[in-house]
């Protein structure tokens, strides 16, 4: 991901910090949030739209927990030989159930998250990837989550 040339100013940073916490569920939520920030409704809307356009924020809206909607997830890792890395990346990414995939500096050099409608779906996709690549897919399902909520200070 490339950093944008746009540099958020102090007011932008105040908005980003405040709105990580929460945005009102009400008829005029921007007006309500703006009042807490000592801004006008119009200025808040304009600044948020610009932050989004300039990609200083990646998203603005509700964040859904797909597991709470009934889906299943699993972090997986593979040890991919260097000369096959690009080919295996294509094989893994071809599965729509692969939500994100990172190359990491380690013997286990490919880390991806599977997201499926059902718990059985995880095994089906992981086995398919093993068949297609001939490589072992290590499964790291979450046993417990310690989620406090990340609040980066912008």
């Amino acid at each position: 991901m490339k950093p944008s040339d746009y540099r958020p100013d102090a007011t932008d940073r105040r908005i980003i910090n405040a709105l990580q916490e929460g945005f009102p569920l009400s008829s005029h939520p921007y007006a309500e949030a703006a009042a807490d920030l000592d801004l006008s409704e119009c200025e808040l809307i304009e600044r948020l739209a610009r932050l989004r356009k300039e990609r200083a924020i990646t998203r603005f809206g509700p964040f859904f927990d797909a597991a709470a909607m009934g889906g299943a997830f699993c972090l997986c890792a593979m040890n991919v030989p260097g000369d096959r890395f690009e080919a295996v990346t294509a094989q893994v990414n071809a599965h729509s159930e692969v939500a994100h995939n990172y190359e990491r500096a380690h013997q286990l050099n490919m880390w991806f998250v599977l997201a499926t409608e059902t718990p059985e779906g995880i095994e089906a996709v992981a086995c398919a990837i093993e068949r297609e690549t001939g490589l072992e897919v290590l499964r790291f399902p979450k046993l417990e989550e310690f989620y406090i909520g990340f609040r980066m200070v912008a």
Binding site: Q20, F60, P62
Partner: peptide
């Protein structure tokens, strides 16, 4: 949906890269 955890929160997701 928020009360039953389907919506975790409503707000912004900062772009870590753009913010340094």
């Amino acid at each position: 949906m928020q009360a039953r955890g389907v919506v975790r929160r409503i707000g912004v997701a900062p772009n870590h890269y753009a913010l340094g």
